[in-house]
Design a protein around this nucleic acid. Structure first.
Lengths: 197, 197, 197, 197
DNA sequence: GATGAATGAGTCTTCATTCAT
DNA sequence: CATGAATGAAGACTCATTCAT
């Protein structure tokens, strides 16, 4: 019989890789990275343990792939046109997106915060995450600056903390916190800025 | 490392037990619960591995003791006289204490958030923590209610999220966030309440 | 690497089979049989892993084929006309050939000695090798006997050990031992025999 | 009860370590390093798998310990007073010892040659072995030099090869080669040197 | 109380081999 | 013929826990 085509193999790889990543994210988020064994991931993905290593070098590579892929996707949201400048619309959009994204990706957020809290475990991941985060603060801080805010970096940190706090509480227990009400309060609190004082 | 001294758990009569708890907290916070082996704790505490099991049933019991002991200490801070009522002074004191405590106990906070994020791992701990937390929200919510706030529970959640966000960012990287400036901003944001609108 | 070219196993009809054997020999010799994975062989041979199993039943069969093919080739050298009798010319020729062959096949020698040293691993191979070796000793021993040597079998073992010693040292590190000088010394040591005392 | 004394623990460690090394040497020699699993070593030593790691960092460390310990012991034999000079008595003694040692340590020799043949596998070990070997050649070469030998290094290599050849054949199959006869032949061959030509 | 040797279940990872295409 | 995805058994190593002393 004719061997499978290159594309056929490629398709299998892409699909199976996604399968593994999905299973891994759910398990990492709910049970924790260290408690999740590769066997469990394989089982959840409905494949054999060995096959995992056909797609990833190691358990850690699964984690890295998971984190970096999602982070980049996430950063696109903050500064869509990547010009380092944030308009009023983009500011409101960012807050809006934070809440939209939160609902769809609470699994990822759990994993993200868990990782940030234990840097020793995953040094490499942490460093790269820091690098990805810095420009975000820049953009937001620039925005506050342009609005005449006295201490824009502090304001950016404050907003970031507020959102992180809401996010983490939602990640911990989605039923504990009413997202819509929270969003309204955040928008209202920052209205003076985007309504151009 | 946090300025928690070797006398932290002095209320725990046995000196050895305090030694173990101190060592465990530092390691759990910096490396993570699962990555920290009992041997490492013993080594850090300057005792033998076997001795740990004279004082604790298991590694998990160390964690539980750590968490519950500290949580109770913490809750005392929120509502000192346990009357379920919060005065303006107590409200400002609570915010003040949050920051004071944060500086001294970032190790514990790391551990606390890490645990809350992965409930499956430590079901028992989580349930008890929830129980401890509920009354706090009640007290704060009551306070906002007494001030004529329309949706006091939402306001309590919002404040809690804000503080959690600051706390977690500080726990992750103490250099990234200026505590004093943050405290000023929080107090200023809630001034309308405790200055009796 | 040894100067064995890709055409080494040309007597093996299938070209692919020769490709596999060449790759396997080089890898087995340099890395060791157990450390060499079938994937690595396939990669070195420029074919797919699965295809190897079209030509060989197992990894072990590759090794066996490698060894037996080469050993037979080698034995032809010792007693070319297979009459069990060795002339003075054939004796000198044998020593000469040992050195010639050594230079071209140090890869094989590494593998050969490695296998002889760990009989349990490859019982089957060992037995067959022994069978192949015995007649060689006979022929050489007969030669010494015909020269009036008192203890011809001892003499044969001695010569064999000497050559093995040179061979193995060359196989281990070709730069460590000057083959020409060694050959001269061997020939000189045995000159009394072939110069008919 | 009083805890065991320091000496008591020390004794246990020494004994158990020797137990493991003995079991490992026998298995490494007969089956090969890679084929010998840590479980098998533990089983042969009559202890649990895990305990092995209480005494050695890794399987490789067992091998290294085995090799270096024995090699140093061995080198003492060559140049007992470590003055780099070899007398006639020491020369004869060295040959004598080679054969004595051979009988008692054929297991080690198997392992030694097997390792030398596959340098890639155990780079570290190989390098150190080379270092240990060089001075030996120096001493022997000096000896031949002092005897007026034209090319002492060649002579040293030749003798070394001869002994290696005998050793390896004995290691492969002790019944195949009569040690006494071999020793007599070696001594006789080199008699002109130590009988002061 | 105190020590650390000892256990064994569990973890990540590798690899010979099979098989659908 | 050829390919490489897929499997599963096996291997090195870790670690919570037990226990003799």
């Amino acid at each position: 019989m004719a061997p499978r085509t290159k594309e056929s193999f490629e398709k299998i790889r892409t699909e199976k890789k996604a399968l593994i990543l999905d299973a891994a994210l759910e398990l990492f988020a709910s049970e924790g990275y260290h408690v999740t064994s590769v066997s469990k991931i394989a089982q959840a993905a409905g494949i054999s343990k060995g096959l995992i290593y056909n797609y990833f070098e190691s358990k850690e590579e699964i984690l890295e792939t998971l984190v970096f892929t999602t982070m980049e996707e996430l950063l696109d949201m903050i500064d869509p046109n990547k010009d380092g400048v944030m308009t009023d619309e983009e500011f409101v959009y960012m807050i809006d997106m934070n809440f939209k994204w939160l609902e769809a990706n609470s699994d990822f957020l759990k994993l993200y915060f868990a990782m940030m809290l234990q840097p020793t475990v995953l040094k490499l991941v942490e460093v790269k995450l820091m690098e990805l985060t810095i420009p975000v603060f820049k953009v937001i801080s620039n925005y506050f600056d342009s609005k005449g805010c006295e201490n824009p970096m502090i304001e950016a940190r404050y907003l970031n903390s507020l959102l992180d706090g809401i996010n983490i509480n939602y990640a911990i227990d989605p039923t504990s916190i009413p997202l819509d009400a929270m969003k309204q309060k955040v928008l209202q609190q920052y209205a003076p800025y985007y309504n151009s004082i």
